[in-house]
Design a protein around this nucleic acid. Sequence first.
DNA 1: GTCTATAATGTGATAGAC
DNA 2: GTCTATCACATTATAGAC
Lengths: 188, 188
Amino acid sequence: MNGKLEDKRARIVDSADRLFYQQGYRQTSFTDIARETRLPRGNFYYYFPSKDAILAAVVAARLTAIQHMLNEWERSASDPRQRIDRFLQMLRTAAGELSRFGCPLGTLAQELGKAGAAPPLPIYQLFEPFRGWLTRQFEAMGSAGAADEQAMHVLVRAQGATQMSHIYGRPSILEHELDRLSEWLDGL
Amino acid sequence: MNGKLEDKRARIVDSADRLFYQQGYRQTSFTDIARETRLPRGNFYYYFPSKDAILAAVVAARLTAIQHMLNEWERSASDPRQRIDRFLQMLRTAAGELSRFGCPLGTLAQELGKAGAAPPLPIYQLFEPFRGWLTRQFEAMGSAGAADEQAMHVLVRAQGATQMSHIYGRPSILEHELDRLSEWLDGL
DNA sequence: GTCTATAATGTGATAGAC
DNA sequence: GTCTATCACATTATAGAC
């Protein structure tokens, strides 16, 4: 049902997602999205009421994609330590792209966090699925420190490593920091 | 010499610096700078040839400010471990502002790193003074690992802690992570 | 040197033909 | 449903009066 319409909506969200990631939200114009999606500029207002609405759809799509990823990790391993390793492996696999364009969540959050921008939802909610999932893994591990602080610590180091790797344009920075993070986890 | 002219140039750079930090470079218009500095919009082109030139001046000003800060830390302590502590103390003192607006270097680097932006200089050079200085401190400490990797590790954790603290709007995240970083340094 | 008026361009958004 | 033409506005930048 609604095949064509939903189809084009999805195409728009898909292209916008990629462009927002690589160029930033504000820097990406309807002309850019039109070029990528081969749709006339004026037509976007048939599918979405505003540019902000496209952003909201992109954010929603990312959130569901994250949920699917977390569910997959939950299924593929029963040991919490191994599950966290899935997270690190994902970052390692994406090291090249992360080094080129930064973290898709972090860069968007930073742009929308600037004064004058109107985020579609509190920006930290982009990280809440990861934070909640990591917290549950640390709880299951029964490690010494508070689980929620351990979870935030992992996010801090992953985010920092991704950003410095991006700034210096060197994937090896992220890869090396992921090794250190893995060692730290083993020492718990 | 050139009192008035250099004075206004400095006022422009000063206001632009603050606005670029709080709102982002692209989001800040000449109208914004004009309001803050009480100068007519059109006059900026007497003092600077373009908006990019203002950005370049802001970046240059930040770099010299960083150098002065590093020199001060170098003077105020002879023990390298204590010098690194000066760095951490600076972050702790600024935790409120960092939590509100993010890292002035990191957010600018991220914005200028997006495709289509023309940075006044390779963005990683904003971090090079800190990285070089930290590397020299770790060399003086003669710790186990490679000094340059230790330096990058500190930058990674400081940057990540600042960004997550900013995203969640909670200074305590940065403060807590600075405690952990301090403990890690003590364990070297 | 200082200011105002305005050009040139690109943006998000709308109206209306087909 | 799809497309084109165009609006209203903000932006950087320029020209020229005083």
